Computed example of a mutant assay.
Amino acid sequence: MVTHPSRGLHGQAVEEIGRRIIRGDYPPGSVLHPDKLEVELGVSKTVVREAMRVLASKGLIESRQKRGTTIRPRAHWNLLDSDLLRWQGSAAPTERFLEDLAEVRALVEPAGARLAAARRTETDLAAMRQALDAMSAAGTDADAMVEADLAFHRALLNAAHNELLSRMEVVIEAGLSIRDRIVHGAQHFSDSVPVHRALLRAIEAGDPDAAVTAVESLLSQASRDLAAVQARDGHDEDAAGATPDEAP
């Protein structure tokens, strides 16, 4: 079992079984055997039972008499659950999953920016400025850039002062984290500080229209960076599979 030092055995079991389900190791309709999981993960019956309870609450599995514990169809999964979002993106996210996340960001963030421009407080602005400073200082440190980017967009949604909109941060952060780790990890990306700075200035000025324009520009740049990395990776795979005579 892959260990996560910050989690107990129960949390590690949830993590491992959940990732397997999301990856498709256990397809919908298949049966999970707790006794086998106990042996594979090296944990007790109690740990597996508690892990199953958590996974059931996320809509991934169900237990019935005579049928045992089975994997539910994807339509029943709680896809907005923070763990499910993270599991889907932590391995090799599908193109469809990345497109869905990009579409959600395009719906949520412009609205959040418009509200933030009208409702932001000095505390909100200070949080955004601090995140922007961290982005500027990150340089080529991919992990630092990702954390700073997440902090900026979290502060942006919080500045809208809408509790329900703030809850969308779980989706926004999943999309950002996945996109950022692909792009920054590949060391192939545009300088994102200027577009974030333009967004901050629009919110500081209390200009909703300018804030929407700035966030749309930011999202467009993010999409271009991701597309460039995917195109390059696809070219590298084609080149690796070509014969010497076919290689570019």
Results as ranks from 00 to 15, higher is better:
158 N>Y: 07
102 A>E: 08
52 M>D: 04
144 A>K: 08
161 H>V: 00
149 D>T: 13
18 G>C: 10
180 D>H: 15
39 V>Q: 15
75 A>K: 01
227 A>Y: 05
129 R>C: 03
42 G>F: 11
46 T>G: 14
200 L>Q: 02
40 E>Y: 11
177 S>V: 00
32 L>Y: 04
235 H>T: 12
195 V>H: 10
107 L>Q: 14
139 G>A: 05
218 L>D: 14
22 I>H: 02
108 V>H: 00
139 G>I: 07
45 K>Q: 15
83 D>C: 03
177 S>H: 11
162 N>D: 15
74 R>D: 00
27 P>A: 01
142 A>W: 10
198 A>I: 05
151 A>S: 15
64 R>N: 12
161 H>T: 01
57 S>Y: 04
229 V>P: 02
166 S>P: 01
160 A>E: 04
206 G>W: 01
230 Q>T: 06
126 A>T: 06
151 A>K: 05
235 H>P: 00
153 H>S: 05
242 A>L: 06
219 L>R: 12
116 A>D: 05
202 A>D: 04
94 T>W: 03
70 T>M: 11
137 A>M: 08
189 F>S: 15
10 H>A: 14
98 L>D: 01
142 A>F: 04
200 L>I: 02
103 E>V: 00
118 A>S: 14
241 G>W: 02
40 E>M: 13
176 L>I: 06
165 L>G: 04
9 L>S: 08
239 A>K: 12
38 E>Y: 05
124 D>V: 06
69 T>M: 12
58 K>T: 03
101 L>A: 08
212 V>W: 05
106 A>M: 01
86 R>V: 00
3 T>P: 06
244 P>R: 06
119 R>F: 13
156 L>K: 02
131 A>N: 05
93 P>I: 10
65 Q>H: 13
205 A>L: 02
37 L>V: 04
230 Q>L: 15
239 A>L: 11
6 S>M: 11
138 A>H: 11
55 L>H: 01
117 A>L: 07
84 L>E: 00
152 F>E: 06
113 A>T: 09
194 P>F: 09
42 G>P: 12
102 A>T: 09
6 S>H: 11
192 S>N: 12
244 P>A: 06
219 L>P: 09
156 L>C: 04
155 A>H: 01
145 M>T: 06
33 H>M: 11
17 I>R: 11
66 K>I: 13
90 S>N: 11
136 S>I: 10
218 L>R: 10
101 L>K: 00
203 I>S: 01
137 A>W: 08
10 H>N: 13
89 G>E: 03
20 R>F: 10
11 G>T: 06
26 Y>L: 09
6 S>F: 12
